[in-house]
């Protein structure tokens, strides 16, 4: 029954994406609150789902891949709501909505909502898992800022002053947002690892190796960016690639630790 909340959330994200596409296509896009409102409404519906599911499983609702995907989409929108208006990235909602919509649709349509036997009631383990996924949300949004950067760069290099270029934020600002979101995600993931160590979770195996590898990749990106050893363009390309890798490894790293 609680899945209806997700259908409503998916509808909101679809509305946000569709409205922006239509507005850009017809040349009437103006920075407005519509994206923010639809994204906030979708977030509220997702929150309602997570609350009800949490009541049912009696724990943080990240006990299987279905819940992890929903939680990840929720975390991505959470970071968007915290970051988007601050940086006035009016089109960020339009770029965020397809990602969260894809995550939700996959969660809803794929047969992955199986009851898990590994439900933890250790608060440190739950904290570790929840903060890890929120970190992934920040990395997801960094990748979205990265995609916006690449679109903007392509438009500028091609010397086209299109509707999209006119409405995207300045390219240097997108580079800064990408960097700050990677910093946010990296700090959250570090916090999650610390909580995992405090919980005494088993650090052997593929799950830990993949998580640490992703953490190390983002750490390397931050060092390269901070020391300005590579250009902002390459950092954003790398951040998009690392996030895609993180998504691929998500089914394995999303298993609750022993």
């Amino acid at each position: 029954m609680e899945r209806y909340w997700l259908v409503a959330a998916a509808f909101c994200y679809l509305l946000s994406f569709g409205h922006t596409l239509f507005a850009l296509g017809s040349g009437t896009f103006r920075p407005a609150r519509f994206n923010l409102l639809t994204m906030a409404l979708g977030f509220a519906f997702s929150s309602a789902f997570l609350y009800q599911r949490g009541q049912i499983v009696g724990a943080c609702p990240i006990t299987n891949l279905f819940e992890v995907l929903v939680f990840l989409s929720w975390a991505t929108v959470l970071i968007y709501l915290l970051v988007g208006p601050t940086y006035r990235l009016s089109l960020m909602g339009a770029f965020t909505s397809p990602l969260v919509l894809t995550l939700l649709l996959f969660a809803l349509l794929a047969p992955i909502d199986a009851a898990s036997k590994r439900i933890s009631h250790n608060p440190w383990v739950e904290f570790h898992a929840a903060v890890s996924i929120i970190a992934y949300g920040a990395f997801g949004l960094a990748a979205i800022a990265g995609v916006m950067y690449l679109v903007q760069e392509r438009q500028l290099k091609a010397r086209r002053l299109s509707e999209l270029l006119l409405n995207l934020p300045p390219i240097t600002e997108l580079g800064r947002v990408n960097f700050r979101l990677i910093v946010t995600g990296f700090l959250l993931l570090t916090l999650a690892f610390t909580a995992g160590m405090l919980a005494g979770i088993d650090v052997r195996g593929w799950k830990t190796a993949a998580s640490l590898f992703i953490w190390a990749l983002y750490g390397t990106l931050l060092i390269l960016a901070r020391l300005r050893l590579v250009s902002a363009g390459r950092i954003v390309v790398a951040s998009v690639a690392v996030f895609l890798f993180a998504l691929i490894t998500l089914p394995s790293v999303s298993q609750l630790p022993k």
Partner: peptide, 20 residues
């Protein structure tokens, strides 16, 4: 009011899109 219609205005608009 879309876009810039002189060389100077286009240059300024592009500079804004690069640097803010």
């Amino acid at each position: 009011t879309r876009g810039a219609t002189s060389v100077g205005a286009v240059a300024v608009e592009l500079a804004g899109k690069i640097f803010g």
